[in-house]
Write a protein that binds this DNA or RNA. Structure first.
Length: 225
DNA sequence: GCGACAG
DNA sequence: ATCTTGTCGC
């Protein structure tokens, strides 16, 4: 699929990264309802102690979640992990893989925040601007915001707010299991992001797209000797 | 200064 | 994220 090169990822300082986030946040579209989803993509990364980053983008069918294609890639780490700047560490390699994707998915699910971010531009939102297709951020813990714990039953949820504004949803994808933090990446509404995330989590806490991608990068990294 | 802090 | 065995609970 074609990628929009909004900006370069080369030689960026944290201040450069911050300026980029502040500038791009205004371009995020928070409307859009996913109608028919036939293909969905999941992506995730893993890192080795010696500074190698591994990434996997997997294309799945919906609603059976059958693997259609797997894209793998690795490179030397180019940016440290700094809360609030995850995309500058993970997006470059993931975008290289998305550039190789033949069958463009209807939506992409990423392991991290969407607009639930200090400057409203988490990994899912940032990548969403490059891909120009709907993206959803599914994080295992929160980065910013306040919320009341949702009911313990699967499907129950509560708002994640920040600066008195709804920026995400705390969703229980499994009964009596810690909730996940959902937020729109780009080109999708909060409501649609919540509904589709739940549809993608028929059995486990982590929705299938990112769960399968996680499993695939783990074995990719492990097999790399 | 103190606490929080995606992966 | 990564280093790591067994173990408690649904």
């Amino acid at each position: 699929m074609k990628i929009n090169r909004i900006h370069s990822w080369e030689n960026l300082t944290v201040d450069d990264a911050k300026a980029i986030q502040e500038k791009l946040a205004d371009k995020i579209i928070l409307t859009g309802e996913l109608k028919q989803v036939e293909l969905i993509a999941g992506a995730d990364m893993a890192f080795s102690p010696d500074g190698i980053a591994y990434a996997v983008v997997v294309i799945l069918t919906f609603p059976k979640f059958e693997v259609v294609k797997i894209y793998r890639g690795k490179e030397a780490v180019r940016f440290p992990y700094i809360p609030g700047y995850l995309s500058f560490r993970e997006a470059p390699l993931l975008l290289k893989l998305f550039a190789q994707v033949e069958n463009t998915p209807d939506v992409v699910m990423l392991d991290g925040q969407g607009i639930s971010h200090p400057r409203k531009l988490g990994l899912a939102s940032h990548i969403g601007l490059f891909l120009e297709i709907p993206t959803i951020g599914v994080a295992k813990s929160k980065l910013v915001g306040e919320y009341n714990p949702p009911g313990v039953e699967k499907g129950q949820w509560s708002w994640l707010t920040y600066h008195n504004e709804k920026i995400g949803i705390v969703l229980r994808t499994r009964t009596n299991v810690r909730p996940v933090f959902i937020s729109p990446g780009n080109m999708i509404s909060l409501e649609s992001a919540r509904r589709w995330t739940l549809k993608c989590a028929p059995k486990y806490r982590i929705p299938e797209p990112t769960r399968i991608a996680d499993r695939l990068v783990a074995e990719f990294k492990k097999s790399d000797v």
